[in-house]
Design a protein around this nucleic acid. Structure first.
Length: 730
DNA sequence: GAGCACTGC
């Protein structure tokens, strides 16, 4: 294999790998226990690095409207800071301290830990709120952990966040769409609420930017507010910035001596080389997708068999980890490896932030990831393999230093790392469709979207496209104001605007029962289980109908319901039980929203005779079309000629209907293999999502076959009939 | 003709 070099190292050692510094240092098994476990909780709290900064932090929050805290991993910021604020009196007078997290599990686990430290029951003084679950008690709860999405929703009924005295935004450097929106809104709220304190927790790389963003010391305060009676000294409008050291071990980084164009083989070689050194510790390999992970697991299993002859102390045990994996298969990943076994976790980006693994000492990083990108000119998304950022690479490397000093092997040369990887990842805000975000801002009273202060403004084209989409859906009027009732109702529903729109249409057409199901199932990750391609195809065929995927989902839902929502049924039919349960939750939540909005509910298919079935189904399809008509595609006569390679020859090409020319007209679409319409060629289709992959094709998923006349009927503002022959025009 | 990084309301 190609050897590895440490930064600044010139001559390669025999194998490029050398852990001499590690030998004899900690010979035994890697410790994976919390060595403070037996200490009283209070003593453990005092031992956290952040404890030494307690007084200073409280002083900064007291005297500054915004405080940016750079707290490295293990500093204790997430669990301690909210408690310090509570102890210092910020929760007196019925106010709460909020702490937002980008992920649901984080909000739940952190809340549980803090409740334990404070010696109270979860949901009393300490609570959390995530979608479907509000574990907090009004009047009792003082510290509330929640996802940033929940706090955003909460702002729709409490725009000034009057319930809260302090809002702490954790993991702000991750720059999720919801975090960026929240930051912009918090800055706006601060102008109206000088008493509110904002605490931003961020990694070093984004900290300065956060502080600059919240600095309003040069902005003149509006006169109306200057006249407010001063309650003590006003806090400084220049943010405070402070760092708290973390508690992690050093990670030594190694690079390839020569570049590779096959990072899968390189990853396997690196893992084998590490294994041969015969030192303790698990290995974590970062790749880009499910297929890659499975391939490398197989290759490592082969290598493991071969290595069994070579008298090593440990046996290799490769395991894959990606989001689509059924929970049962994930178990092996988190269980500590038994004695004499070295775990090799082959993971996607999920291991970068979403899950933490114990016992990892070695990280092998392909330095690639699949990145979602939005093209506002076509209105379509891409999911392409791209080099990760240096910030991402640092995060991945850090996964090696949780239990003891570790090593990170990047599968590129140091020169390429320095010159080809961008410093930071482009924030989600700048590579997503923003129609949902724009609508939410409108409903929060941000009238002029173009002048809203973003931490990083999205492309103007994306904003314009979002306004156009919302206008086409009828959610905005010609002055780009929220329409009534459609606009306010679409904004009220916790759904993508197109899905919300079809739900409203279904109420008018009397088929909410069916559309609720479809919308809920479109809102979950994947209905079908991964694995055995043929098996899934066969299982799917049992539910397939010519009208397309959305109608087939109705059959899956019905059959799952008739089985008594049985997990056994789901497994037998290659349906993801987890997804179905979540869809059921979403469906129920949406139904409650419909009731609250006072919308009529009904079923088109229930109790309908076979004779009237087709007509009833057309009603459902039209309701669905009312939300998706923007994504209309028509089958062309063209046959694909060598788009990427000969495999594509003969595939049916679809073109967007809405485009008059330009980038959108050039986009070649085809029906995704996962669609039940893959082998059919309906003339006219609508799709919920299409994304470009590395083959160059835009693949349509969740397809609905329609009749062309529906387009002009449902969306005359967008589509009109063009006579084929001008002479036929009357 | 072959396949879905990760979150969130």
């Amino acid at each position: 294999m190609a050897g590895f070099l440490r930064p600044g190292e010139r001559a390669p050692v025999a194998f490029g790998l050398s852990f001499d510094s590690d030998r004899g240092e900690a010979g035994g098994a890697a410790p994976v226990y919390n060595k403070n476990e037996r200490l009283a909780l209070a003593e453990q709290r005092r031992r956290l690095p952040i404890y030494a900064h307690r007084t200073e932090l409280l002083y900064l929050v007291e005297t500054h409207a915004t405080t940016v805290v750079v707290g490295e991993t293990g500093s204790g910021k997430t669990t301690q800071l909210p408690q310090y604020l509570h102890e210092a009196g910020w929760t007196q007078g019925g106010k709460l301290v909020a702490c937002t997290q980008p992920r649901r599990v984080a909000a739940m686990t952190v809340a549980a830990r803090v409740a334990e430290e404070m010696g109270c029951r979860l949901g009393q003084e300490v609570g959390y709120a995530i979608r479907f679950e509000d574990v907090s008690t009004p009047g009792v709860t003082k510290i509330r952990f929640c996802t940033d999405g929940v706090l955003l929703r909460e702002m729709m009924s409490d725009p000034l966040l009057l319930k809260y005295s302090v809002v702490m935004v954790d993991e702000a450097h991750e720059r999720s769409l919801a975090t960026d929106m929240l930051l912009g809104l918090l800055k706006k709220v601060q102008r109206r609420r000088p008493d509110l304190r904002v605490v931003i927790s961020s990694a070093t790389i984004e900290a300065e930017k956060m502080a600059r963003f919240f600095d309003t010391s040069n902005v003149r305060r509006p006169r109306a507010h200057a006249e407010l009676p001063a309650e003590g000294a006003a806090p400084s409008r220049s943010p405070a910035l402070m760092s708290v050291e973390g508690r992690t071990h050093s990670v030594q980084v190694h690079y390839l001596e020569a570049p590779t164009n096959d990072y899968l083989t390189a990853a396997v070689e690196a893992a084998v080389a590490i294994h041969r050194e015969d030192l303790p510790g698990d290995i974590l390999i970062f790749l880009t997708g499910q297929d890659e992970c499975e391939t490398v697991v197989r290759l490592l299993e082969d290598e493991g068999r071969r290595l069994q002859r070579s008298k090593l102390k440990w046996r290799l045990k490769p395991v894959a980890l990606y989001a689509g994996l059924p929970a049962a298969h994930q178990l092996g990943v988190f269980e500590p490896a038994p004695r004499g076994v070295r775990k090799v976790v082959v993971a996607t980006n999920i291991a970068e932030t979403s899950v933490t693994l114990e016992g990892i000492v070695y990280v092998v990083d392909s330095c690639f990831a699949k990145q979602r990108c939005y093209n506002p000119l076509t209105g379509l998304e891409s999911l392409l393999i791209a080099p990760i950022s240096k910030a991402s690479a640092a995060q991945r490397a850090g996964r090696a230093g949780r239990v003891r000093p570790g090593h990170c092997f990047r599968l590129c040369t140091e020169e390429d790392y320095e010159s080809k990887l961008p410093a930071t990842t482009v924030p989600e805000m700048q590579r997503s469709d923003l129609s949902g975000a724009v609508l939410q801002l409108k409903s929060l009273g941000v009238d002029n979207i173009m002048t809203f202060e973003w931490l990083a403004p999205p492309p103007a084209e994306t904003m314009i496209r979002a306004l156009e989409t919302l206008h086409a859906l009828g959610a905005l009027d010609l002055d780009a104001r929220l329409s009534r009732p459609v606009g306010t109702q679409v904004a009220d529903l916790p759904l993508d605007p197109p899905l919300a729109r079809m739900l409203l249409a279904s109420s008018e057409l009397g088929c909410t029962a069916e559309v609720l199901t479809v919308v809920a199932m479109l809102s979950v990750q994947s209905v079908w289980a991964p694995g055995g391609k043929r098996e899934v195809d066969e299982a799917k065929a049992r539910f397939s109908v010519a009208e397309g995927d959305l109608i087939s989902y109705l059959n899956v839902w019905k059959a799952w319901g008739e089985s008594g929502r049985s997990k056994k049924w789901a497994v037998a039919h290659r349906v993801m039980h987890r997804s179905m349960l979540r869809a059921a939750d979403i469906r129920e939540q949406l139904q409650a929203h419909l009731r609250r909005l006072g919308l009529r509910q009904g079923s088109a298919l229930e109790g309908v005779s076979l004779l009237d079935h087709a007509e009833a189904l057309t009603t459902v399809r039209k309701a669905l079309a009312a939300g998706m008509f923007i994504n209309a595609a028509k089958l062309t006569e063209e046959l694909a000629v060598k788009l990427s390679d000969q495999q594509d020859m003969g595939a049916s090409v679809y073109r967007l209907v809405r485009s008059a020319g330009g980038d959108a007209a050039a986009a070649k679409l085809r029906i995704h293999h996962s669609s039940v319409l893959f082998r059919c060629r309906p003339q006219w289709v609508l799709f919920y999502a299409a994304e470009q992959n590395d083959s160059g094709w835009y693949e349509m998923r969740d397809v609905l076959a329609i009749e062309s006349a529906w387009l002009t009927e449902l969306a005359p503002h967008m589509y009109r009939l063009v006579p084929l022959n001008p002479q036929l025009r009357r």
